[in-house]
């Protein structure tokens, strides 16, 4: 196998005879002329844009004031007939609705997750430009499996977590990736496929329903 490594590297070097020996990777100019932040939009505009983009994916957005959060989650559970939710162990107390069974994820088996009615999580950040939720495996996002296997995902996004553009979100999670090898998942709407005659169907293998609760 080390033969293969040596051979491939030899082939690569032979293929690059035209590259001057003294050239540094940084000598190949990369002009980053694109936007890395949105200087013009106000906070409200950014949050409004996020909500509009999420709804464009056929996900539901519920905007609530902080004191009403737990009640809203409780109402959504009753409407969606969700009796049992899996949650990351560190889910804040004030998010937890009354009358709904919350099962903390302490390395639950996937078969157990498959039996859950839904999942309640937070997120690491969110992107207005694309209506994306960023999960980082941290205290609020939980393990990857819990937001994947159950069919209904309730995700709490705090208004100040919403970033305007994709580059801001990539920069925001870089530390978690470098320091704790955080697995990052970008979620934009419910799972979907257009594989049959390009007819969009929401809900394939990932959660079929995504409810975003935006706390202001």
């Amino acid at each position: 196998m080390s033969d293969a490594r040596a051979e491939i590297l030899r082939r690569v070097r032979a293929a690059l005879v035209d590259v001057p020996a003294g050239e540094d990777p940084e000598d190949v100019a990369v002009a980053r002329g694109y936007r890395t932040r949105d200087a013009e939009a106000s906070r409200e505009e950014i949050v409004d844009r996020f909500c509009a983009m999420v709804e464009d994916y056929n996900a539901q957005v519920h905007r609530v004031a902080a004191p009403d959060l737990a009640d809203t989650i409780g109402r959504l559970c009753r409407e969606g007939r969700l009796r049992q939710l899996v949650v990351p162990p560190a889910l804040p107390e004030q998010w937890r609705p009354d009358g709904i069974e919350l099962v903390e994820d302490h390395d639950l088996e996937v078969s157990r997750l498959d039996g859950m009615d839904g999942v309640l999580s937070g997120c690491a950040s969110a992107i207005a430009q694309t209506g994306t939720i960023v999960l980082d495996g941290g205290a609020r996002s939980g393990r990857r499996a819990i937001t994947l296997v159950p069919d209904h995902h309730l995700c709490v996004v705090e208004a100040e977590q919403v970033l305007a553009l994709v580059p801001e979100a990539i920069a925001r999670v870089a530390g978690a990736v470098r320091e704790r090898r955080a697995p990052i998942t970008l979620v934009s709407g419910p799972s979907a496929t257009s594989d049959i005659e390009l007819d969009r169907v929401e809900g394939v293998h990932g959660p079929r329903v995504l409810d975003v609760v935006l706390v202001e």
């Binding site: 990857r144 704790r180 955080a182 697995p183 990052i184 799972s191």
Partner: peptide, 20 residues
């Protein structure tokens, strides 16, 4: 896919502690 963002993007770095 002509979407602003595809539904899911997974980014993993080797073996994550206690996940996956």
């Amino acid at each position: 896919t002509a979407e602003r963002m595809n539904p899911y993007t997974s980014l993993w770095t080797g073996v994550a502690p206690e996940d996956g």
